[in-house]
Simulated scan of single mutants.
Amino acid sequence: MTRSLSRDLGITGPLVDGTWLDSTSAGSQDHVNPATARTNGTVLLAGPREVDAAVAAAKQAFPEWRAMSPDRRRRILQRVEELMLQRVPELGRINTFELGVPIRTSAALGHLSAGWFGYYAGWADKLEGATIPPSPRMVSGLDYTVPEPYGVIGIILTWKGPIMSVGMKVAPALAAGNCVVVKAPDLAPFTVARFAEIALDAGLPPGVLHVLPGGPEAGDRLVRHPDVAKISFTGGIPTAKKILDAARHTLKPVLLELGGKTANIVFADADLDEAVTETVRSCFTLSGQGCNLTTRMLVHREVYDRVVTATGAAATALRVRDPFDQHERTLGMVERAAKDSRLVVGGHATDLSTLPPGNRGGYFIDPTVLADVDPRRPAVGPHPP
């Protein structure tokens, strides 16, 4: 059972065994668009009851998914990649609604996630064992290894980039033959829900993937559940400590991806313009909340004052706008360029009625060609000149 989130985010809740639940034990909350302060929709929150149901269904689906031929699992995951790439504009739009980040950033995260599914799909039929030569002291014997999936994997996603984390965490778990229960962040549940629809459309068996938007209570139950064989978590250190403490009761392994405050080290002979540009970009992309984003500078005293002044100027030059403004900005660039060149084709917003139904909520511009362009004028495209 699937339903579209492309036109109206509406109500979203847990996906358990291929069915979207219309009521939950943990109640509901409104989701507020951080860029506009308007309500996007209603989120039905999972509690321990929904976690138990999802884990039970995943446990039941595991033997069949594990026994499925690796090449068939590979083809399903490759189809997930194909559908994600087709729907990147839609995923980006939803991600921007729920996070308030620029549409360009959201689209990039969707492309990254799809790429991981393509990469790990290639591993599905290459997880092989090995035979190990016996010790010379042994008269006879045979040693060999056989990789085995864990079973049910619990994945706890961070709010700052859930669609990217889906690719990093869900794809390898599925490729290895595991079933997955995802606790989607209650602050950003919509792109994960849309991904789940895509996975089902790609042919993933209903019981293999479950999505539960919820808060700490749902996460705690997922970690402590005796039938969850492993936990993967992205987030902060205080929560990670609680997860480790809860996981010790069942001795389950835990994979932690934790935050930090990475620094750019700026020496006196550095390219100061580049150092400032990259640091400012990192600090204000996703509010600096990315594992590879540098949010501090350690600056040599000889150039410290110059760097401080330049960084202040670069930050002042940034403008806070509607995250969808990039669409209008690109159209404006084309319009200005066409005044002193020749517009061959395009140059206007796409007629959305001509697109497939799944893409009609996107922000598209027809492919555009300009001729007789002065080579000295700024570039026209989605990236700043």
Rank of each mutant, 00 (worst) to 15 (best):
S4V: 09
R7T: 11
L9V: 12
G10E: 14
I11P: 00
G13I: 03
G18D: 02
S23T: 15
S23E: 14
S23A: 14
S25Y: 06
S25C: 07
Q29P: 01
D30L: 06
V32E: 13
N33Q: 15
V43A: 11
L44A: 11
P48F: 12
V51E: 01
V51G: 00
D52P: 07
K59F: 01
Q60E: 10
E64Q: 11
S69Y: 12
R72E: 14
R72A: 09
R75D: 09
Q78E: 15
R79A: 11
L85R: 14
R87N: 04
V88C: 04
G92Q: 11
P102D: 07
S106T: 14
A108S: 07
L112G: 00
L112A: 02
S113I: 00
W123F: 15
L127D: 02
E128M: 03
E128Q: 13
G129E: 04
I132K: 03
R137N: 07
G141M: 08
D143S: 11
P149M: 05
P149L: 09
G151A: 04
V152L: 09
I155K: 01
I155P: 02
T158C: 08
V166E: 02
G167S: 06
V170S: 07
P172H: 14
L174R: 10
G177I: 00
V180K: 13
V180H: 05
V182Y: 08
D186L: 01
A188K: 02
V192H: 00
A193T: 08
F195I: 10
E197W: 12
A202Q: 00
P206S: 07
G207N: 03
V208L: 08
H210C: 12
L212G: 11
G214W: 11
G215V: 04
P216E: 05
A218W: 02
L222E: 09
R224N: 10
H225E: 08
P226G: 10
S232E: 10
L244A: 12
L244D: 02
A246C: 04
A247Y: 10
R248P: 03
R248A: 15
T250N: 10
T250L: 03
L255M: 11
L256H: 11
T262K: 10
A270C: 13
D273L: 05
D273P: 08
V280K: 12
V280C: 10
R281A: 12
T285N: 09
G288V: 07
T294W: 00
T295N: 08
T295M: 07
T295P: 12
R296P: 10
V299Q: 09
H300R: 08
D305M: 00
R306Y: 00
V307A: 00
A313T: 14
A314I: 06
R321C: 12
F324L: 13
D325R: 15
Q326S: 07
T330E: 13
G332H: 13
L343Q: 14
G346Y: 00
G347F: 01
G347L: 06
S353A: 14
L355A: 05
L355C: 13
P356Q: 05
G362E: 09
P378C: 05
P378I: 01
A379S: 13
P384F: 14
P385T: 00
